[in-house]
């Protein structure tokens, strides 16, 4: 009889739900979350680098922007802002996938939230703290990134002057100054976690150190670029005239 009840317990543990609750979706959800996260993270790293080309002057940034907007395919060498628009939509989609699957991780009840806070208070632990901040930043990004992306979809023009205008005169700096640290923290530690989570690298502490260095580097890069745009923006007279290549 006892053996029977044991079997029942074992059976009960076996999940028989349908649809998204089906156990196969547990694996898919985890994979999709990681995959979308890696895409977003790597995109962010590239994004920050491309946009920091402004540090090398307006011309450098202009060329980079035109190139990325598909300038080589146009006779004039000018890119198509539509590319930015489409790409932004695509990133929004990836972001939505990431958010949907990442939401599973959020403490949904007050009890869970309290348990987490208690845990952090009584058993301080670095990776738990990092995850906590990732969760907080993830939550903020849920609002900040779509704001940024909608701007890019509705107003996709990118250029040394146009971007600077957006940053300075249209007050996007306020968004970016929030977005930059939040997204950098989330992306860098997210990438670290994915690597560790799937066992891609065994040297975890080296990885963590690298992540921290990367974070500092991205912050410096981001802040420097942002300041550059602000300076450019301040020097521009209204209405702003798009930058014209010197080449």
């Amino acid at each position: 009889m006892a053996a029977n009840s044991l079997q029942t317990k074992v059976d009960r543990a076996v999940n028989t739900d349908k649809g998204f609750a089906h156990p196969l979706w547990a694996a898919r959800a985890d994979k999709l979350q990681s995959l979308s996260g890696v895409l977003l993270g790597l995109f962010l790293v590239m994004h920050l680098h491309f946009e920091s080309s402004i540090l090398f002057g307006k011309e450098a940034f202009y060329q980079v922007a035109q190139f990325l907007e598909g300038g080589i395919f146009s006779e004039t060498g000018h890119g198509y802002p539509l590319v930015t628009k489409i790409f932004s939509c695509f990133m929004l989609l990836i972001l939505l996938i990431h958010a949907v699957f990442a939401l599973r991780r959020f403490p949904t009840q007050l009890g869970q939230w309290r348990a987490l806070r208690n845990q952090m208070r009584f058993l301080p632990h670095e990776d738990t703290k990092i995850w906590f901040w990732q969760m907080i930043t993830g939550f903020l990004l849920f609002f900040l990134v779509p704001t940024h992306l909608f701007t890019m979809i509705t107003n996709p023009e990118i250029g040394p002057h146009l971007s600077a205008e957006r940053v300075y005169h249209l007050n996007a700096w306020a968004l970016y100054i929030l977005l930059l640290p939040v997204v950098a923290v989330h992306a860098v530690f997210g990438l670290y976690r994915v690597v560790v989570k799937w066992g891609l690298v065994e040297q975890r502490f080296a990885m963590l150190k690298f992540a921290k260095v990367l974070l500092v580097y991205l912050m410096v890069l981001g802040v420097a670029s942002l300041l550059t745009y602000i300076f450019i923006g301040r020097s521009l007279a209204l209405p702003v005239v798009p930058y014209v290549s010197m080449l």
């Binding site: 543990a13 076996v14 999940n15 156990p23 196969l24 547990a26 694996a27 959800a29 985890d30 599973r104 991780r105 058993l123 632990h125 670095e126 990776d127 738990t128 995850w131 976690r193 560790v196 989570k197 975890r204």
Partner: peptide
């Protein structure tokens, strides 16, 4: 997979690594 291939098992782990560190 029947036993741990779910949210309560390996796909519920968020890699906080408290286990590893203690």
């Amino acid at each position: 997979y029947h036993v741990i291939g779910n949210q309560d098992g390996v796909f519920g782990c968020m890699t906080l690594l408290g286990c590893q560190d203690t």
